[in-house]
Each structure stands twice: as C-alpha cells, then as structure tokens.
Design a protein around this nucleic acid. Structure first.
Length: 526
RNA sequence: GGCGCUUUCGUCUAGUGGCUAGGACACAUGCCUCUCACGCAUGGAACACGGGUUCGAUUCCCGUAGGCGCUACCA
C-alpha cells in the first residue's frame, strides 16, 4: 500500500450535546491530522431522523470553536467532498446500495420490526444471519416476481448485508494490533431502509469514508465489534486497496463505581460532561458545561489529551495544543478505559489560571460578584485575584467527604473573598482562630482590644497607605513595641483566620475602611 | 448467554526477560510563615490470580477472575 495523504474525520450524530468522550475522540483526530500534515473533516451523521435534536449541530460546532479544535472541511467549513451532512446524500447511498444488490452482496428483506421482535421473543438469541435468513421473508426466499410485487404495492423493506459465514475476518488496529472475529457471529446488518430512504450508520460510514478519501478511522472502542463488518463492506465494494486504517480508542469511565461515563454522572458529582452548557429543547433540563463552569479551553484540551495517551518518559504534563501535536502518537495510546478524574481536571485549570495574567479572570469574576450584588472595578478584581488565586477551597467529593483543593475557577473565589467587599458584621467567639488570637485583659497584661486600639491609633498616623508604604512605616514600630498584631488585626478586618497579607489587605480596603473595621471589632469583641 | 477488548500505586500512567518498578493528581509530614495557602523537601502507596516457557519473569504464552464494550430498521 502506498502512503496516502492523512485524512481523518469526526462524525457526530446530532442527537444532543457533544459528550466529553466525543470531544476526546475529535481531539485525537485533530492531533493526528496536524501531526501528519493531514486534514480533518467534520461530517454530520443524521441518518436516524427519529433521534434528531434541533440545535445539536450548532452546539457541536460552537463547542469546537471554543475548544480551539479547527476543522479543514465539512459542515459549515466547506470543502470539495460534500455534501457533508448524510441526510443530503441520499442519492449517493442509493446508488451504492444498488451496487451491492446487483452483485449479490446484499438482499431485500420485508420482515417488519414487529415480526422481528416476535421472532426474538420466540427464539432465544435469534440472529438474522446465514442460519436463519432462509426462514425469513426476503429476496432470497421469495421469487423475483413476488419481491417486485411487494415493492410495487408499497411494502416497506430494508436492504441487508449478506454475510458469508465461517470466515475469520481480520482487523489491523493501530492501537490493539490484529483483532480477529469470525463472520459467523456477525448478523446480516440492515444497510438501508426504504421507509426514509436513508442508509444506516454502517453503509453510510463506509461509503462516505471512501468517497471522502479518509485514510484513518479513529473512533471509540464501542465500534470495535463492528469493525469486521466494515472490513467486509469495503471488500464487497472492492475498495480494500484504499480501506482506511483503524484505531479504536479506549472509553472514558465513571470516576467512581463501574461503567462508562454517562450524561448523569457529571451533575451528580459536580463536574460537567459537556463542553458547553446545554439546554434540552424538549425537557428544558440544563446540563452544565466546562465553559460556563469556568474552565479555560486549554486546560480541558490538555487534560483530555492525557486521558488515554501520554508522551512517555518524564515529559511535563502541561502542554499546549501545539506541543500535544508535536508529541502525539496513536500507537502510544493506552488500551484500557480511563476513569474520569475531575479533581485532576480542576488541577489543570488551576495551573492554567495561575499562569494567565490576573486581569484575564476579571470578566468571569465580575459575573460571580454581580450574582452576589457586588460591583467592583477591574483594578479591584485583578488585585483580589492576585492575592487569592493560590488559596484553597473546601469542597464535597462524590462520597460526601469534605476535601480541599486549589482555587480552580473564578467561582471558587467568592467564598474566600467576601471580606474584601463586605465588612464582618459579627464575630464567632467560639471560632478557634479568634479564641486563640483575641485575649481578654487580665491582671498582668492589657487585652487584645487595648493593643488593637493602640495599633489603630498608630495606623491612623500613616501617610503612605500602600502595602509597601505601610510595611516600611509600621514594621519598625511593631518591632520596637514588641507586638505581634497580625492575627488580631486579621480578625478585625476579615473576621476569620483567612485572607492575604495584612498590609495588602489594608491597602486594598483603604485607610478609612480599615480603621472603621478595627474600631467595630474592638467594640464587639472587647 | 454469545463475541470481542482489557488488567502496573486510590486515580491517570511510564517502563524493562535481571531496575531500590519512574512521574503526575490525590493523601500525609516537615520547612517557610501574619491566618489559610503557594513554594520547597520528604513519605506511604502498584505489577489481579494460577500455570507454563526461561538460569531468571511485572514483562512472553495459556488459563481463571475482575473491568469495559457490542449483541436494533441507534450511532
């Protein structure tokens, strides 16, 4: 076989939002295409009209736009192998179905879905294949005249692939090596339905991949069992010379428990399984998306790329899209399913966020603040981000345990930064930090209140109210007075044992607010 | 049930016919410190099991068990 230009495709069905596993499949196709100077095609597989969901196609396109995964041709991208929407290729499929019918590789079957259901109930493990097709109503058991008459009178039919039994069919998979399945276990798959004059996935897939000159089929492992069927179809058409190479990717699994990652896991465990928020047009349900959750696309891509593949050796896990392209190698994909580790996904986002300029957080942070009824300037928000982005936040994991993790999203900021915008209204005397750091006066020592009072008086004299200015002014005085005012001061301004450096906080609040909060705390705590 | 794929720390994984089996996330401890952190350092933690092949198997082969997928006029 001669070296062919690499042409790969991502071909989703517009039946709903794009699942994160689909995103990974698309990403691997993208990486492979870029790596080999090839092309990536975007095809819409809408041959099942009953499952079509309006808006899904637009959603998928929008998702890739956000993720930065670019297609070279396909629906909405142009190209000269179109149309790229399967529902617009009826005539093409019909032509190829006839080819199969004429050369005896396929036959017409009249059994209705109801009849087949009945048969399945009646015969355990019924399969429409070489062992049973002679008992059914099809062009193999009916005379030509009967068949023609049936079609003439408007009976609906399907075209089935006639699989010759007893043959070991070999699939040479890039990731898994040789996979052999005996054709006897395959059934005579429906390739085409007269009812809507559309093919099923199997036929459309082979015809399109051939016509679109696809060189490599990179798809999920759920397709592995039908890969031999596809090989047989290429043979039936006489296209084996240009048959694409296959690569079946391992699946994404639930983070906890068993089974593959599903739509519901996400919102149950608190992480999205869709790139963008999705509003179901039928039920009105809203499923959360990575974009709305506050992920940056680079982090999502980076994390996803490493689920089932890695560059090997001790290479850094932080990689840009270009770096991923540079190192990507299909043959180094792992073979077993990967549990979806959303804590690590958050870590990736954390890494990207602290690498981005603080001001990049402002739009998202602004939304978070507005939701709390707070307005702040861009400068203020940038400052808060700078001071708080390396803190940690508590969260509840899938098992209901309290855990801590790095701040990974703008929305994590609010619970930890209220005090920048809202003064403490009361103090919890039982709080460990307050009990430890706010002492009442006794016979030998003046209490914390007195100390804070003196400290406030001294602060009032400060002229350069910036973090640096205050430090230069106050540090020597504190030293001279042999004071350790930090924790008590923190109680005054924050109300808790939280927050950034005290000089920085004071500088942010301003002189008036700082002194006001101190007087209030002194009065309250005594 | 049938068919197929798969199995290295809790998770994602690297790796080899002979290694103290490496890294990342998570976890723990210490240092730093003005709280919580960040950062830095350290630590615990894995080759599913049973047979072979072999001087020697985590690595190669065969079973068993577990996990996953497919088994539609869905993709």
């Amino acid at each position: 076989m001669t070296e062919r230009k690499v042409r790969v495709r991502f071909a989703p069905s517009p039946t709903g939002p794009l699942h994160i596993g689909g995103v990974r499949t698309a990403l691997y196709n993208y990486l492979y295409a870029r790596k080999h100077g090839g092309e990536l095609i975007f095809r819409i597989e809408d041959t099942d009209t009953t499952r079509f969901v309006p808006g899904a196609e637009e959603y998928i396109i929008e998702s890739f736009k956000w993720l930065g995964i670019k297609f070279d041709e396909g629906v909405s991208f142009g190209g000269n192998h179109g149309p790229y929407r399967q529902s617009e290729r009826r005539d093409i499929y019909k032509k190829y179905v006839d080819v199969l019918l004429q050369n005896g590789k396929a036959y017409i079957a009249f059994d209705t879905p109801e009849e087949l259901d009945a048969k399945r109930k009646e015969v355990e493990n019924f399969q429409y294949d070489a062992s049973t097709r002679q008992q059914m109503r099809n062009s193999l058991t009916l005379s030509k005249e009967e068949v023609d008459a049936l079609i003439e009178s408007g009976h609906q039919y399907v075209v089935r692939f006639k699989i010759e039994p007893g043959r070991d069919v070999e699939v040479d998979d890039i990731i898994r090596g040789k996979v052999v399945i005996n054709s006897s276990v395959l059934d005579d798959k429906v390739l085409y339905k007269s009812a809507d004059q559309l093919p099923t996935y199997h036929l459309a897939n082979i015809v399109d991949d051939h016509l679109m000159e696809v060189s490599h089929v990179i798809r999920g492992e759920e397709w592995l069992p039908s890969a031999p069927l596809h090989v047989l179809l290429y043979e039936a058409f006489g296209w084996t010379d240009t048959m694409p190479r296959f690569a079946h990717l391992p699946l994404l699994l639930k983070p906890i428990g068993n089974g593959k990652l599903s739509k519901r896991d996400g919102d149950k465990l608190g992480f999205p399984v869709f790139p963008l928020e999705w509003h179901d047009p039928k039920t009105g349900d809203i499923s959360s998306g990575y974009r709305e959750k506050g992920y940056v696309p680079e982090a999502v891509v980076n994390f996803l790329a490493l689920l089932g593949w890695n560059p090997g050796e001790d290479h850094s896990e932080m990689m840009t899209l270009d770096e991923l392209v540079e190192h990507f190698d299909l043959s180094k994909c792992s073979k077993n399913g990967a549990k979806f580790d959303y804590v690590k996904a958050a870590w990736f986002n954390h890494q990207y966020l602290i690498q981005h300029p603080d001001s990049d957080w402002v739009p998202a942070f602004d939304q978070v603040l507005r939701a709390q009824g707070i307005e702040a300037t861009a400068e203020q928000m940038t400052e808060v981000v700078r001071m708080m982005k390396t803190k940690v936040i508590e969260y509840v994991d899938g098992q209901g345990n309290k855990k801590k993790r790095n701040i990974s999203f703008a929305s994590d900021l609010w619970p930890l930064c209220q005090f920048f915008f809202v003064a403490p209204a009361s103090f919890d005397r039982e709080d460990k930090f307050i009990r430890k750091n706010w002492k009442a006066a006794d016979a030998e020592q003046a209490g914390t209140a007195a100390e804070m009072s003196r400290f406030a008086d001294r602060l009032a004299e400060a002229t350069d109210w910036t973090a640096e200015g205050l430090k230069a002014d106050i540090d020597p005085w504190v030293e001279e007075q042999q004071l350790r005012p930090w924790n008590a001061w923190r109680i005054c301004l924050v109300g808790l044992g939280q927050g950034p450096d005290m000089y920085e906080l004071a500088a942010f609040l301003g002189k008036e607010e700082t002194l006001c909060r101190m007087r209030f705390a002194i009065a309250e705590l005594g």
